[in-house]
Amino acid sequence: MSWRAHGMRAWLLQRLSALYMLLFAISFLLYIAPNLPITYEYWSDLFTRPSIAVATLVFFAALLYHAWIGIRDIIVDYIHDTTLRFTLWVLVTLFLIGLGIWVALIVLSVVAV
């Protein structure tokens, strides 16, 4: 029984990524809540902090991975033509990788190292 071949890893990471996003969202909202309403000065300073930047990058990584598995489930369930299924899967994968690079560049451009 291969951990990978049986989809157990994807199943587990799907849930772990969901859990991380949930905990990140709650902590993030609690963290910024005392500073409402949020000003541009506060907001732009926030992501210069390395801890926030890293947590944000992990959030987007979790989001993109979560979306990747979710879309894979949808494609596998409804697209039965192997060529179309594979093509869509490759396009979605490239799309999500592109989004990942984009958001990583945004965060890296503001974080103070």
Binding site: L63, L64, A67, G70, I71, I74, L99
Partner: peptide, 9 residues
């Protein structure tokens, strides 16, 4: 979930 996927960009 599919809608949220579209919202990510």
């Amino acid at each position: 979930g599919a809608l949220l996927f579209l919202a990510v960009p």
